[in-house]
């Protein structure tokens, strides 16, 4: 029954949405939105690398995203104005990736499939890769959850309790790189960061604890993935952007609710 391309698309979308949601919570709690942008935009450089060296696309993207994420987390730890630096890196990575792909000799690359994803062309092998990555991200986060939270609140506090904030930062970096590598097929390099940030931000008004926020984000992300897929089939629109549009609509709804019922914001 996995022959059905719509079912495969739905499973791919669900895998990405479920893993991106809790990771996205950390991205917004730690104010790493630009970090997510820069890492996911670097995916295009990874595509170019993979095509040039006959590596699998996922491996190329994983490698480049990991290097990019490590470089950024090293640089931004040194009190260089992090916001400007990340903005520069995010856009430079995207531009360099576009140039690199176009320079590849003898390749006719469909750029838009890497920029916006091609979820309807997901194969069974892709599904294994996507769910493998999603499960890896989920396990990493579940394993380090409390230590990550402590390090997010205050690195010194985590350190004094016997933790290692630098290691937690590395684990998040690794999870982000895996996420980017498996999500590029589904939503594309341009919109991966959206799947991280939007469901998490949408979940905020409904949660009283970090855990309930992550669960809400997973539910909302899954809803956006399935709703966007159905909408794109119904209206014949590109699927990746449709998924993100549904996520954005849910965010608008959630914001409206939290404004209309201010008591919900903190008391849930």
């Amino acid at each position: 029954m996995l022959d059905d391309f719509i079912l495969r698309a739905a499973l791919a979308g669900l895998g990405v949405a479920l893993a991106a949601a809790p990771l996205g919570c950390f991205v917004i709690w730690r104010r790493m939105a630009y970090f997510g942008d820069a890492t996911s935009h670097a995916a295009l450089l990874g595509v170019a690398l993979a095509l040039a060296t006959d590596l699998p696309i996922t491996a190329g993207v994983l490698l480049v995203a990991l290097v990019m994420a490590l470089v950024i987390s090293t640089l931004s730890g040194r009190n260089v104005s992090a916001d400007a630096l990340l903005g520069v890196m995010a856009h430079a990575a995207l531009a360099l990736g576009l140039v690199a792909v176009s320079l590849l000799p003898g390749q006719r690359v469909d750029l838009s499939s890497y920029l916006f994803g091609e979820i309807l062309a997901v194969t069974r092998t892709d599904l294994v890769v996507i769910w493998g990555g999603a499960v890896a991200v989920g396990l990493l986060l579940a394993w380090r959850w409390s230590a990550l939270l402590a390090a997010t609140l205050n690195p010194d506090l985590a350190q004094a309790s016997g933790g290692n904030p630098k290691r937690e930062q590395l684990i998040l970096t690794l999870a982000l790189a895996i996420m980017v590598a498996v999500a590029i097929k589904v939503v594309g390099a341009l919109l991966i960061a959206a799947m991280l940030i939007i469901p998490a931000a949408t979940a905020r008004p409904f949660a009283r604890t970090p855990e309930t926020m992550a669960l809400w984000a997973m539910g909302l992300g899954a809803l956006a993935a399935l709703g966007g897929l159905m909408a794109s089939l119904e209206f014949d629109t590109p699927t990746g952007p449709s998924i993100v549009s549904v996520a954005a609509a849910l965010f608008a709804l959630s914001s409206a609710i939290s404004v209309a019922l201010p008591a919900m914001r903190r008391r849930g």
């Binding site: 917004i28 730690r30 104010r31 205050n154 010194d156 506090l157 905020r204 970090p210 855990e211 309930t212």
Partner: peptide
């Protein structure tokens, strides 16, 4: 060591009850 930091800024996007906070990291 029990450490009480100088300041601890909790991002508005992070929902956290007192009970959950004192359960960190264990």
């Amino acid at each position: 060591i029990g450490y009480v930091p100088q300041k601890l800024q909790i991002d508005g996007t992070l929902p956290l009850t007192v009970r959950r906070f004192v359960n960190l990291p264990r």
